[in-house]
Design a protein around this nucleic acid. Structure first.
Lengths: 182, 182
DNA sequence: TGGGTCATGTAACCTGTTACATGATTAG
DNA sequence: CTAATCATGTAACAGGTTACATGACCCA
């Protein structure tokens, strides 16, 4: 039930269309949750049926019409409930197809494994660069809006992301060294 | 398609029943992939239809009959293919409902957030203890079997797990400090 | 002339979760 | 007496992925 609540959280900041939500999602929640546009439309529909949202059409002549969603009182209540029932158990689980691959890498040659780990290390570095950009845009936002209580928590998630990729990079480098010493 | 390939990898070590696979899964892949028993049975069925596995019944009088699965040549080929087409893109994504919660924690009181972070830090410490136990059992296995090429990669995934939880713990402690200084 | 942006979705499929069912044996 | 272990599953539902459809406008 996390995508629904992610969308709820964003709509709590202000009314938006599905299309706009998708773009906002991409620049914020996307670091730790992924969603296709089509899925967003489906969820918005379901959420409206539950009474968490209302919608109204905005007619346009030059472009397709818009369907703007607004959070309701019951939607805000649902968001609060969700925040109060922590997802801590979930927080302790890792789900990584890549680690599964590593687990079975004894069936592959060391040369292939080294190659794979080096590409992984490379991607980690690229992700770190992207985190720098994200940080910059968040702290810029802070200067402009002064919504510092929200921004503090956004920065905490960003810092988690950065540390995650740093950890991955260190792990990969150490793994490469171990394999090369063989 | 990762659960299928995880099961394939385990069956590559030796023939097993669904029930046994579930237990082996719990003590190995479970650190980075989770699966219900019922899902395992369903996937085994699908994999047999694809020709990756064959099965035979083992009759028992005192206990329920067993259905033992064996990997086929085409199953081994599939495993190899899977290993050769890296899942690196996937490796770069984090999916965490907990981080989504943190992202929206500006809507909650600082007191509640501190409580949540402290519980999280606690759980990280517990996970680290479990990683110690896992490490011990893997290195014990190594001494017994001498399958050192496989064990090397298992240890790499375990080391990733440990580092992940260590990172989480440090992040949580730093976050707590930031909130307390407010 | 082709591709991108704007904006909505539907349909089919795959994967994951939860609840339920059976029925004997064994350990506390 | 109760709960766990052994061993198989089915059914329903929720959530995520992929492919497809429409149609105008703008930019190179």
């Amino acid at each position: 039930m996390s995508l629904k609540h992610g969308l709820l959280g964003l709509l709590n900041y202000g009314s938006m269309t599905g299309y706009e939500l998708h773009k906002v999602f991409q620049n914020s929640l996307n670091f730790f949750w992924q969603a296709q546009v089509s899925q967003i439309y489906r969820e918005l529909n379901a959420m409206e049926k539950k009474g968490w949202l209302t919608s109204e059409y905005e007619m346009q002549t030059d472009k397709p019409n818009k369907k703007r969603y607004t959070i309701t009182k019951s939607g805000r209540q649902e968001l609060k409930n969700w925040l109060n029932h922590g997802r801590l158990e979930d927080a302790m689980t890792i789900r990584s197809a890549f680690m599964m691959e590593i687990f079975f890498s004894g069936e592959r040659s060391t040369r292939e494994n080294l190659e794979q780990l080096k590409t992984f290390a490379d991607l980690c570095e690229k992700s770190l660069v992207r985190m720098d950009e994200a940080d910059a845009s968040v702290s810029n936002y802070e200067k402009v809006t002064k919504e510092s209580d929200r921004v503090l928590y956004w920065m905490l998630t960003a810092s988690f992301g950065r540390r995650y990729f740093e950890m991955c990079l260190r792990w990969a480098k150490d793994a490469i060294q171990i394999l090369e010493e063989e």
